[in-house]
């Protein structure tokens, strides 16, 4: 008697498996960020590698240290700690001492992720929380911007400061385009903004490469396109309207989009699936909220840049947005939740 091919196969659900896993999304976001990280190395030298490396090391160290003993290796494999470190590193100024970058990565994972219960339970974006911690802890070092030196591949002496010690003064510092606009009424040409040849944090450098990574993520369906689109649209409309009142004083829409950390924040941080709303309507509200807050802080606030606080504030509003934008269940009456 020969074995017959079985005619009926029984499976249990889920029958349609998707290859969309956390590890895959994290990997692709990291790939999408690599061109921008490369641009940071080109403009700021190996100093960019040191700062980003230190913040990744801090994030991964915290991830490893606070993982339950049974799943110690597993939580590292999905790459979320690595991504947090990379994102944080890209928001830091080039001359930051490595120990501060390490501390930022460590604090970001501890305060932004571990104490909430790990990946998927956090209210705030860990990378931005790490940056907010550093901003509040070392306000001077976090706002000392070194001008770019394309193609020189140098290392700033500030990076090599001993732990707990101040960074030596590197001589030349430069203001960011937003700082120049706000405090000295000086407009940076759009071409240097788009290519990244301006002072600023590592990842703000190249707007075009960040957009390229965003398009890659959009093609791969790794994020909700509504969030970056609504943020950028809101910012553009807001500054266009302001421009109607006083074109001299307020930035043009393109300047607003390409300056500061807006592209980095809108494409890679606001879209964090854990800390942004899940419903399409919620995503629009979330994005518009961030755009309005960014422009309010930039134009009317005391700080030149507000992307970090705008995203963190809207992160806090995410559970509320999710709650009020839940779609009506078919056949039920529409009523408030």
């Amino acid at each position: 008697m020969t074995e017959k091919e079985p005619k009926l196969l029984l499976f249990h659900a889920p029958l349609l498996r998707q290859d969309m896993t956390t590890a895959r999304v994290m990997r692709e976001v990291i790939i999408a960020l690599l061109p921008a990280a490369g641009a940071a190395v080109w403009f700021f030298g190996f100093t960019a590698l040191l700062v980003i490396g230190a913040s990744i090391a801090g994030a991964v160290a915290a991830e490893w240290l606070f993982a339950p003993r049974e799943s110690r290796g597993a939580s590292l494999l999905d790459g979320s700690g690595l991504l947090t470190g990379l994102l944080l590193g890209l928001t830091l100024p080039p001359g930051l001492p490595m120990w501060m970058a390490f501390l930022g990565g460590f604090a970001g994972i501890c305060l932004g992720k571990v104490i909430w219960g790990g990946l998927g339970h956090n209210l705030f974006n860990p990378a931005l929380l790490g940056r907010a911690f550093l901003q509040a802890t070392f306000p001077i070092a976090m706002t000392t911007w070194t001008p770019p030196a394309p193609g020189e591949f140098g290392v700033l002496s500030g990076n090599l400061a001993l732990p707990f010690m101040q960074a030596g003064v590197d001589g030349v510092t430069a203001a960011t385009p937003l700082g120049l606009l706000k405090f000295e009424q000086e407009v940076t040409p759009l071409l240097s903004l788009a290519t990244g040849n301006t002072g600023g944090s590592l990842g703000e450098a190249s707007g075009l490469l960040l957009l390229l990574g965003g398009i890659f993520l959009w093609i791969r369906r790794d994020f909700d396109w509504r969030i970056p689109v609504s943020i950028l649209l809101t910012v553009a409309v807001f500054s266009a309207v302001l421009g109607l009142f006083d074109a001299e004083r307020f930035p043009t829409p393109l300047f607003s989009i390409f300056s500061g950390g807006l592209l980095l924040g809108a494409i890679y941080m606001a879209t964090d699936p854990v800390t942004s709303p899940v419903t399409p309507r919620g995503a629009w509200i979330f994005g518009i909220g961030i755009g309005v807050l960014v422009m309010l802080i930039r134009v009317f606030g005391g700080l030149p840049e507000g992307v970090m606080y705008a995203i963190l504030l809207m992160n806090a509003a995410t559970p509320l947005i999710d709650r009020y934008t839940q779609p009506r269940v078919f056949g039920r009456e529409a009523k408030s939740p």
Binding site: P97, A136, T137, F138, P139, A141, F164, M165, Q166
Partner: peptide, 16 residues
């Protein structure tokens, strides 16, 4: 304790 080069963690003496 650490000499003049110590970088203070400003957040620590603030409420957070």
């Amino acid at each position: 304790l650490f000499g003049a080069d110590f970088e203070p963690w400003v957040i620590m003496i603030l409420p957070p």
